[in-house]
Nucleic acid binder design. Structure first.
Length: 420
RNA sequence: GCGAUCAUGGCGAAGUGGUUAACGCACCGGAUUGUGGUUCCGGCACGCGUGGGUUCGAUCCCCACUGGUCGCCCCA
C-alpha cells in the first residue's frame, strides 16, 4: 500500500522541523496581533466557485470535489481565504468591536495537480487575513509579516514582487483596453487566452505560451490605467514599505491566479540557486469585493498565504539548520532481574518530575543499551545493577564527559533536576 | 490534463531470461564477566512496486495499474 498520489507522510525527524516552523509562525502572528481561526477542510463547492472565481485554474481543473451521501457537492478546500471570509460573514465578525479583524490559519489545502517537488495534492498553508480596513498601512503590514516569516528563520535569498491591480473602475478601463488590444490578434493567441479574452483578459498577461507574442510587449499595463485613488493607494503602500525598509520590485504583469484580487498584489519568490522550477514561496493581495460576494456587508480585506513545504525547501536550499534539540535527558539502564521493577519506578518518578527519560524494552545486553542511549543522545545514563540496588544507590554517568558517580536513590530526582 | 523517466533488503545502490540476487550504510551478535561513540570478526532479501501475459523457466521481455522524479500548464 502506498499513500495517494501527491500526499506525504511526515515522519519523526521531519515533524520536529514542522513543529518548529509552526511555532515560529504562531509566535509571529501573535507579534502582529493576528488570532487563529480554524475552519473546516471541506466546504460547499459553491463557496470556491463564487469566492475563488469560475475562470481560475483552481476552480476549473484543480478542485477535489465529490458528492456526499446527502447529495451535496463538497470540495476539499484549495485555499484558505474563501473559508475565512465565509466564516467571517457567517459569524458576523464584521460586528466585532476590534476592527480590522485580524486572523491567521494554518492547515492542509488540496489541489488536484500533477505532483512534483514543492507541489503536493495535499499541502499546508499558513496565511493571514485582515478584514475591515482599507488603509495602505495594513497592506504593508501584511507584506511585512510575510517577509518576517522567512527572515526570522534565516532566509536571505528572497524577492518581493509587487503590483497593483487597481480598483473596479481602473480594472474595467484596463480590461476594455486589453480587449481592444488583443482582439485584432485573437486568432494568434493560444486557446486558453482566446477564452481569457472574453472572461478575464487580465490573465492573458501571465500566459507563458503567448509570452513572446509581439502584442504582449505592447499590451496596456494596468499601471497606466490606475485612477487617482488607485495610484495614490499604491504609492502609499510603497511608501510604507520603504519606511519599513522592505525592498521590492514592481512587476506590472503580476496578476495572481485568483479572481478576487484588486489593488495590492504580491508574491515572494526564492532566489536561491538550484531551487527548481517552482520559485514562488507565497502570495497574497487585497480583495475588497469578496466579503460582499459571499453575502456580507461591503468590507475590504487583504491577506496572504505561504506553503510550509516550500518554506522548508527554501531552508534546505540555503542550507539553514533549524535549532532543534534532539537530546534526551536520561536513559535508565537496568540489568539483573531484581532491578527491573525498581528501574521502572525510578523512570516513572523522573518523568513525573518533568525529566525526559526512557529505558530499554528489547531485553538488550548492557552494551547494547549503552549504544541505544548514545543513539538517543542521552545526556545522562543511570545504571542500576544488583550492586547499586543493594546499596540503595544508582550510578549516574555523564555521557559527554564520561564521568560517573554514585547517587543515593532517595536524592536522585533532586540531583538530576539540578544537573539537567 | 500532456510529455519523459524511474520503482531491487530499514536506507543508498550493482546485476542477469535459468543453480547461493554484489557492495556500502544502518541494525544485531561476538572480540571486552557490568558501561557508549573507534577497530576487527560474523549475521542480516523463500525476495527484486502490484496484477496479468510471453516462455520449459522471469527480478531481468510485453501490457495494465499504483507511486516517485523531471518538464509543460499553473500556482502555495
Amino acid at each position: 500500500m502506498k499513500g495517494p498520489r501527491g500526499t506525504q507522510d511526515l515522519l519523526p525527524g521531519v515533524t520536529e522541523k514542522w513543529q518548529y516552523v509552526e511555532e515560529k509562525l504562531k509566535g509571529l502572528s501573535k507579534n502582529y496581533n493576528y488570532q487563529e481561526i480554524r475552519t473546516p477542510i471541506f466546504e460547499h463547492t459553491e463557496l470556491f466557485q463564487r469566492g475563488v472565481g469560475d475562470t481560475t485554474d483552481i476552480v476549473q481543473k484543480e478542485m477535489y470535489t465529490f458528492t456526499d451521501k446527502g447529495d451535496r457537492s463538497i470540495t476539499l478546500r484549495p485555499e484558505g481565504t474563501a473559508s475565512v471570509v465565509r466564516s467571517f460573514v457567517q459569524h458576523k465578525l464584521f460586528g466585532s468591536p476590534n476592527q480590522p479583524v485580524k486572523l491567521f490559519y494554518i492547515g492542509p489545502m488540496f489541489r488536484y495537480e500533477r505532483p512534483q517537488q514543492g507541489r503536493m495534492r495535499q499541502f499546508v498553508q499558513y496565511g493571514v487575513e485582515a478584514l475591515g480596513s482599507e488603509d495602505p498601512a495594513i497592506d504593508a503590514e501584511v507584506i511585512a509579516l510575510a517577509m518576517s516569516a522567512y527572515r526570522e528563520l534565516g532566509l536571505k535569498s528572497l524577492k518581493l514582487v509587487l503590483n497593483s491591480l487597481g480598483d473596479n473602475e481602473s480594472r474595467n478601463n484596463h480590461r476594455k483596453a486589453l480587449i481592444d488590444h488583443f482582439s485584432p490578434v485573437k486568432d494568434e493567441l493560444c486557446s486558453d487566452c482566446q477564452t481569457r479574452l472574453e472572461k478575464n483578459p487580465l490573465r492573458i498577461l501571465d500566459c507563458k505560451k503567448d509570452r513572446d507574442h509581439e502584442a504582449m510587449a505592447t499590451a496596456p499595463s494596468i499601471l497606466e490605467f490606475l485612477n487617482d485613488y488607485s495610484r495614490d493607494y499604491f504609492d502609499q503602500v510603497k511608501a510604507y514599505l520603504d519606511a519599513m525598509e522592505i525592498p521590492y520590485v514592481i512587476d506590472k504583469n503580476l496578476v495572481r491566479g485568483l479572481d478576487y484580487y484588486n489593488h495590492t498584489a504580491f508574491e515572494i519568490m526564492s532566489d536561491a540557486a538550484g531551487f527548481g522550477a517552482i520559485t514562488t514561496l507565497s502570495g497574497g493581495g487585497r480583495y475588497n469585493g469578496l466579503v460582499q460576494e459571499l453575502g456580507g456587508p461591503e468590507t475590504p480585506g487583504i491577506g496572504f498565504a505561504l506553503s510550509i513545504e516550500r518554506l522548508l525547501m527554501a531552508l534546505d536550499a540555503e542550507n539553514i539548520e533549524l535549532p532543534i534539540d534532539q537530546s534526551l535527558d536520561c536513559y535508565v539502564i537496568a540489568f539483573g532481574d531484581e532491578t527491573k521493577v525498581k528501574a521502572a519506578s525510578i523512570l516513572q518518578k523522573l518523568r513525573e518530575a518533568g525529566v525526559q527519560a526512557d529505558k530499554d524494552y528489547q531485553d538488550k545486553k548492557m552494551k547494547a543499551q549503552f549504544r541505544a542511549a548514545d543513539r538517543l543522545k542521552a545526556r545522562f545514563v543511570l545504571v542500576l545493577g544488583e550492586e547499586e540496588l543493594e546499596n540503595n544507590i544508582i550510578a549516574v554517568k555523564n555521557m559527554e564527559t564520561g564521568d560517573q558517580e554514585n547517587i543515593g536513590l532517595n536524592e536522585l530526582i533532586s540531583y538530576i533536576k539540578g544537573i539537567i
